[in-house]
Design a protein around this nucleic acid. Structure first.
Lengths: 164, 164
DNA sequence: AGATGAACGTTATTATATAACTTGGAGATC
DNA sequence: GATCTCCAAGTTATATAATAACGTTCATCT
């Protein structure tokens, strides 16, 4: 069997509405299970974050809420919704971009790593055990206990390398 | 040979003035070699960044320049110096903290990873080939070319685990 | 000394995030 | 159904991080 280079969903033509719908459905289920409330606002913010496979800034979300939804919204409104979504593992924060992305596997706790294309800004979430183990091992060798990892890789995706 | 857990310098009692001195001397040499100017301000900012093994914020630097040095300084003053130091590989930026750290091995280009103690805020710079290779390999498997990696691990150092 | 350009000063503004307090509304209890 | 209780959301203000744009100074070269 040939080694297959698996093209991420974000780079595969797909019905993105389905991504969004399924993300929202997952979120509903998770919130029910956790006994927390996915309010209309939180749901909407999650939907916005999922509207592309690119990290989205808090103030971008704010702008949509104000302009499109006609909702009176100030920064705390957005940040509180994002905090809720972060706490419940429904979105990730990308520190190097000050931006947020929908989590691809919210149903289980995990460490993830992000590949961010410098050109098209698409970000791919990976769950590489190999990377996490390499980090944990390196940390252990200097007696450091890992609680969380931020792995954000900048570079060029296949499509953008071809295009340029 | 027993596996040795190597305690990082930051956690070893040491004459830290020597760290600073040697960092500054290295920087001088590198700037001469590169034909760029390590001005008094840039040198001072580098010295401040090196004053501990903890990431330092731009506005912290600014405060010292204003209060201790009595220099009239506004944010651009600090950010320009930091930009210079970053460009020349003399400091690193820690995205998850919006802060800066002296680079331990400025003499050669390298990818580094940081272990940041949640309790004492000390950050250790690692240059783990294993981690970098794991990242590169994972990226390659989805046809992504790595240009730079941000690896910032939060957790607890040995000293703080004992203390708490 | 004069010209040149990089470094620094200065003022203003943008971008990101949080504090603190008030109001509203869903679900629980009676 | 009325009321109570809390969590969510609204509101106002402010903190923190970073950059834009333009002016001034100063080292260096001629």
């Amino acid at each position: 069997m040939p080694a297959m280079s698996q093209t991420p969903l974000a780079y595969t033509p797909h019905d993105h509405d389905l991504c969004v719908k399924s993300a929202l459905a997952n979120a509903e289920a998770i919130c029910v299970r956790q006994g927390v409330r996915l309010t209309a606002l939180r749901r909407r913010v999650l939907e916005l974050v999922w509207q592309s496979h690119k990290p989205l800034g808090a103030y971008d979300i704010l702008a949509v809420l104000s302009e499109q939804d006609g909702r009176r919204a100030a920064p705390p409104t957005v940040y509180r919704a994002l905090d809720f979504l972060l706490e419940n593992g429904l979105v990730h924060r990308i520190a190097s971009l000050n931006a947020f992305m929908g989590c691809v596997h919210p149903e289980h706790a995990h460490q993830s790593q992000f590949l961010i294309c410098r050109n098209c800004h698409t970000a791919i979430e990976m769950e590489s055990q190999t990377i996490s183990e390499a980090i944990t091992a390196a940390a252990r060798s200097i007696d450091f206990v890992v609680q969380g990892e931020t792995v954000e890789v900048i570079g060029l995706c296949a499509a953008c390398r071809k295009a340029v």
